[in-house]
Amino acid sequence: MAGLIAPALTNALAGWLDHQRALLDAADNTLKAYQADVMGFLAFMSGHHGAQQGLGPVSRISVSDMRSWMAHERGRGVGARSLARQLSAVKTFYRWLAEREGFEPTAVLSTRAPKFQKKLPRPLAEDAASRMIETVELQSLEGWVAARDSAVVTLLYGCGLRISEALGLKGKDAPLPATLRIMGKGDKERIVPVIDAARDAVDVYLKLCPHPQEPGLPLFRGARGGALNPRMIQKVMEKARLQLGLPATATPHAMRHSFATHLLNAGGDLRAIQELLGHASLSTTQAYTAVDTARLMEVYDKAHPRA
């Protein structure tokens, strides 16, 4: 495949992957997938045009070329979800390359991804969520690391935080107050109550943490004192879920799903849960909690009573 792509373009692809690794902290498996997706795309374009692909030919890819590639991928059995992922990788590389080389990327960036049915979130059962927190704490022989990991996962489940939000907390946020002011996606601010279990877990971590807490530094620290990488929490949960026999869907984000679903099952109001999660629309919360349409319409009817 390498012979189908000019050295300058191969070097550009390597530079883009280095950029993803250095600035965005992309995981190795993610980088391998990106490389395979873009290389496959460029190889197709070489065969499609009957010439080696270099910076010049790539800058002249047309809307028709993109349609031909997508038709080829679907023709060889690539599903809509996988093709959407491939297109996303190609667009990201192409946007970076266009900025670097100074050409117009509209033909590629305007290509629409195929539609597919998004998978609904899969929350953990209540007992599984509790066992996950307990098991996460057993994964490290270092007491402060075990307490740190337990505190982070407790925040995800107990407060419905995204992992980026939990790891975005600073030293000034400790000890945790009764409510946290969280800045979520799209700079949408929300107020989140902090349950006692989460506050206690963070207190235990702070007492054991060997790194001094400073107001402007991250609350959760890595082994060398820097900001904790979210991948560390993902890894420790991977180990815990294998020990517990839980599916691969038992991820940090699943703890947030579980928070919402368990609140709803306990009689929580869907609109209040929407606010706690920071969702812009109620329909997003509906999908998040796998709540049925009848329950959603019940909420709508209460908000908009019929005359």
Rank of each mutant, 00 (worst) to 15 (best):
P193W: 09
G216M: 04
I191A: 12
T154N: 03
G216Q: 10
L219E: 04
G186N: 08
L180N: 03
A240P: 06
E189M: 10
D173P: 00
N229L: 00
K170G: 00
A227I: 09
S164N: 03
G222T: 10
L161G: 07
P218F: 02
S258G: 12
R199S: 12
G216E: 11
V152I: 14
M183P: 07
V152S: 14
R190H: 13
T154S: 07
K185I: 09
L124F: 08
F220R: 11
S164K: 00
V202W: 04
G143N: 10
R224P: 03
V136P: 13
D149Y: 00
V204F: 12
P193V: 14
A151P: 12
G184K: 12
A151D: 03
T179R: 13
E238A: 04
G226S: 00
S164V: 02
G216H: 13
V204N: 09
S150W: 07
I182Y: 03
H257N: 05
T154Q: 11
C209Q: 08
G226Y: 01
K185W: 10
M183G: 11
V192Q: 12
S150H: 14
A198E: 09
T135S: 15
A198V: 09
A128W: 15
G168L: 08
V153E: 09
T179S: 14
R256I: 07
A254P: 08
A250H: 06
A166D: 02
T154A: 04
R190Q: 15
P252R: 13
M183Y: 06
K188V: 01
G160C: 08
P215W: 15
S140T: 00
